[in-house]
């Protein structure tokens, strides 16, 4: 079980959080092609190594934030705001 540093509440157990899956997915405009829309809905990268995800502190402040996580070691490399750019990260171990 991960220990996650909520930007608002501090370090808490994963139990209190909800993972919202891959972050930084751009929502296409209404005029996009079926293929673009399909990718937006369904295409996810499922990486081995660095994964940029969004999480919500559901049983806490209920705020969303971004997390950079290594899917092999489960180390959390960074936590940053929903509107923040992806931070410069140490190389995640593949």
């Amino acid at each position: 079980m991960l220990q996650i540093d909520c930007p608002w509440c501090g370090r808490r157990d994963e139990d209190e959080f909800t993972c919202g899956g891959q972050s930084h997915i751009e929502r296409p405009a209404l005029g996009c092609s079926d293929e673009q829309w399909g990718d937006y809905l369904f295409a996810r990268i499922n990486p081995k190594g660095l994964s940029l995800e969004r999480w919500r502190h559901t049983y806490g402040c209920r705020q969303w934030f971004n997390m950079a996580r290594d899917t092999v070691s489960h180390r959390i490399l960074a936590i940053y705001g929903m509107t923040d750019p992806v931070p410069v990260l140490p190389e995640a171990r593949a």
Partner: peptide, 13 residues
Amino acid sequence: FLMLEEWLQCEWT
């Protein structure tokens, strides 16, 4: 309620 919050916090910020 959670869905509305998600759209506000993550997409239409």
